[in-house]
Design a protein around this nucleic acid. Structure first.
Lengths: 141, 141
DNA sequence: CTCCTCTTGTTATGTTATATCATCGCCTAT
DNA sequence: ATAGGCGATGATATAACATAACAAGAGGAG
């Protein structure tokens, strides 16, 4: 085994040094970060080149521990640790807060059903944008 | 009126010279193009800088005549001309073919309903990836 | 003619992502 | 022990995508 051994909340996954660094950076952040923002924050740990960050992110995404927000070109730690679930995302336009929405098998089936016969869809990307409660202008209260 | 007058199939919208160039480029292509691919193709028409392309694309998107595919960083002409509809997209991973999926009000409502109370979602981005009939490996035929 | 405004041109730069090759450290088989 | 394999990492360079900021043209209104 070539991965670093440690006793974090990594739920059984074996992560390499860089993967751990970058995952914990994302977890600390608690919000989506761009790859280059991650790079800035892990520079102190000795990571200093974009490919290093993208490599780790891709591996973490494969493991289901990180998700990519397509509408933001940003990455966020999975709130469920390592899991093979599928998610949609709701994103606040103002504060960037992200809510992970687990998609049940039925949800996925329903979403894939939007596809015409012509294309046999397998993969869903669903992102919702709006304004969260904190950022919402209060009218009458 | 400051837009170019012409008798294309532009369905009543008044498009500027650059907007027309770029829209017809996208229509000819019939597939999603990156902004820089568009730039290459309209260079012959005298357009030679990225901002010119992005400006026209943004204006065309506002008019609903062009859509952006977030999962591809690409742009495609709306198959419905000028319209204020909302769409999902199904995309073939192999040949890049795109099918525009009109979303009814009910569809949109259903999709926005995925959002938790916490976030008041207004905007849907739904893209489905798969393989189209032509590209699909035939098993028994 | 002059001002205003819309459109376009141009330069420069910022941001996101990947291809490619070099190196390191560890394990294992001989 | 040491050579070779292999996964992880380091490093350089560049590709691909996008926008900020300012200059300049063309045409209409007054």
């Amino acid at each position: 085994m070539n991965a670093v051994h440690h006793h974090d909340h990594d739920q059984g996954a074996k992560l390499s040094r860089n993967q751990s660094q970058i995952l914990s950076c994302l977890r600390k952040a608690g919000e989506p970060l761009s790859a280059y923002t991650i790079l800035d924050r892990v520079r102190v740990s000795g990571i200093s080149h974009p490919p290093t960050v993208y490599r780790a992110l891709n591996e973490l995404m494969q493991k289901g521990m990180v998700h990519r927000l397509q509408t933001r070109s940003a990455f966020i730690a999975c709130g469920h640790g390592a899991c093979d679930g599928k998610f949609a995302f709701a994103i606040c336009r103002q504060c960037q807060k992200v809510v992970e929405i687990p998609l049940s098998d039925e949800d996925q089936t329903a979403l894939l059903a939007f596809s015409p016969e012509e294309i046999d869809a397998e993969q869903v990307t669903l992102e919702l944008a709006g304004v969260c409660q904190q950022c919402r202008p209060r009218a009458a209260v």
